[in-house]
Design a protein around this nucleic acid. Structure first.
Lengths: 337, 337
DNA sequence: AACCGGCCTCTAACCGGTTGCATGGCAGAC
DNA sequence: GTCTGCCATGCAACCGGTTAGAGGCCGGTT
């Protein structure tokens, strides 16, 4: 029923081997022959069967993208960067989410990858997540985004530096009672949480400010998590005058909590986030922007390089991508009482 | 090198046919045999080669999701709904974006689908887009989201009704000089734009209010598009007292334009959107919420039904999903001058 | 004239499953 | 005891490409 390579070979008067080479632009095919084969293939409306091609060649021409979330800004933006690169390269993108949010039972991703893809791209799965380890243990070409792992190429920002920038901004504005909103303080090393935590504390130390642990409030990296964390800070006997939120979405939640308390960001409490979320401009949030789409693009390119190269995982991680402080209305100098 | 079905067959003392049947839980295999085969397979750490399986069976076990955008809220949220269903069903999800934003040249999706997937899920590609037609012309099981097309199952909300609800809300608040922000008025029928436009006009008519075309301002369905459209309305000699934005993101842009003009949503001009975007709550935007993730889930289930069924495209579209007006601070009764 | 090397092209052996059909054994019906 | 029919299993022919290796042809050397 469907046209096969044999039909094309017959119609072009050559062997299937020649058709195969001609259509894939391999060398050792006469230009005339190649042209004729391609014309015949076009006339017959022939398309190579990926299944057969994969079986015969051993290459799948596809990579999996593994992400904890799909619908969150950071992840979908990274994903769009990844997709654009893979699409240009003609590589299929298999999307797999691993979150068990909403109580959904999800299969571990590693078994689903074997023999199915040529490489894997992992977005911001915590370095201590066993699922990440299983994936890495498969030993296939891999590229990480937003996590680092010994011996695996990864693309990240310098989270310590990003947090330092944010914290320094608050310190420079004269604040010394500075709150922290973020993920759990006990986060594993080599995660964004851990590094942002560290950068923040470094700056506090350098500025001779002692960070009062009671001003650290932790929760999920979501609007709701930020709202709750900020609410906790606002109900303290002595509120902070400025707050560093580890992500813009947490900062949005913090803004809502402030509004609920009749407070206004920038005027009553300074607030800075990290991300450069599209909405942060709308909400007039000062933030340390990261090039999210580039993270995806560069990681995808690094993965392609591995695929085209030895097929072995290379060890070259790119240097951290630059971040940029964007000052808006949510931060202001400490009002001298 | 890799374990094949023959290795398993040998180790279990049966034929490859039996292994194949046993591992896929097909009937006509003795329970004892099945168990033994499965144990042996597990011991050998055997995984079926998808390529071989696909070639032999003719089924790919994967579907493509085609979407104009990945990083926008509506699309990534739909996508997450789709993904959760497909993952549970053990179907691979191939992600393809078709936008040519940022001047990227993108291959038309249709050729990339042939022989590669068992079905296609299309998210909100305009009904008059030739790429959509090419995809539908492939004749494979298909499920549409946010578009309707004669003879193709689709999952949507009732866009006419959603717009009616929003418009009616403004009318009920006493407004009669009502502006419209949305996609181009000449949108093709069977698109969300078209229907929302129609619903809005219906309500205006029914209320005996004549819609002044100058109060219609059109642009992209983005924050920037909404900002521009609203700016145009605000520079009119006679501003509207209320505005209906066809999407929340456009409404966000409209809010920013208002703020730039020193105006406050709700107090100076009432504003209502459509979507139920996560951020709308933050910005206190009145909106008609649609169950976005459900759109994805239900469309995915409809596609699975087709795949498991005859393999033919069925014609049964689900009834439109319900929407819900969420009243917040951005709308208020018309202030009697 | 014989030889050589380079460039096409072909032959044929895979890749690793799936599945229609044949086979054989066993239980129940007569 | 024989016949019938069902169930479990095996045989072997695919599915549709890729690719190593074996010619074949041709022009240029010695």
């Amino acid at each position: 029923m469907a046209i096969t390579i044999r039909d094309v070979a017959r119609a072009a008067g050559v062997s299937t081997a020649t058709v195969s080479r001609a259509l894939r632009d391999l060398p050792n095919v006469d230009d005339q022959t190649r042209l004729r084969v391609q014309q015949v293939a076009a006339e017959l409306d022939y398309v190579i069967s990926p299944s057969a091609s994969r079986l015969a060649s051993g290459r799948t021409g596809s990579v999996a993208v593994i992400t904890p979330y799909i619908a969150r800004w950071f992840f979908s933006t990274v994903l769009s960067g990844v997709e654009s690169v893979l699409q240009s390269a003609g590589i299929d993108l298999l999307l797999m989410s691993v979150s068990n949010s909403s109580g959904q039972l999800r299969l571990p991703p590693a078994p689903r990858l074997r023999r199915r893809v040529d490489g894997v791209l992992v977005i911001a799965i915590p370095a201590d997540d066993p699922q990440l380890h299983e994936v890495l243990a498969l030993g296939m070409p891999t590229s990480l985004i937003g996590v680092t792992f010994e011996g695996v190429p990864s693309v990240t920002i310098d989270d310590v530096q990003a947090a330092r920038t944010a914290a320094r901004h608050l310190v420079n504005l004269g604040h010394h009672r500075i709150g922290l909103i973020g993920g759990a303080p006990g986060a594993a090393p080599f995660t964004a949480e851990y590094d942002r935590h560290r950068g923040f504390l470094e700056v506090m130390d350098e500025a001779g400010l002692q960070f009062d642990p009671i001003l650290g409030s932790y929760g999920h990296f979501t609007v709701a998590g930020g709202e709750q964390a900020m609410t906790d800070l606002l109900t303290l006997p002595a509120r902070p005058t400025a707050v560093f939120a580890m992500s813009d979405e947490m900062a949005f939640g913090a803004m809502r909590a402030m509004r609920s308390h009749g407070l206004q960001p920038g005027r009553d409490i300074s607030l800075v986030g990290i991300d450069g979320h599209e909405i942060s401009e709308l909400l007039d949030l000062t933030t340390v922007a990261q090039p999210v789409q580039d993270l995806g693009r560069i990681a995808a390119e690094a993965l392609l390089a591995q695929l085209h190269g030895s097929g072995e995982r290379t060890d070259e991680s790119t240097r951290p991508l630059p971040t940029q402080l964007i000052v808006r209305g949510s931060t202001a100098p400490l009002a001298r009482p």
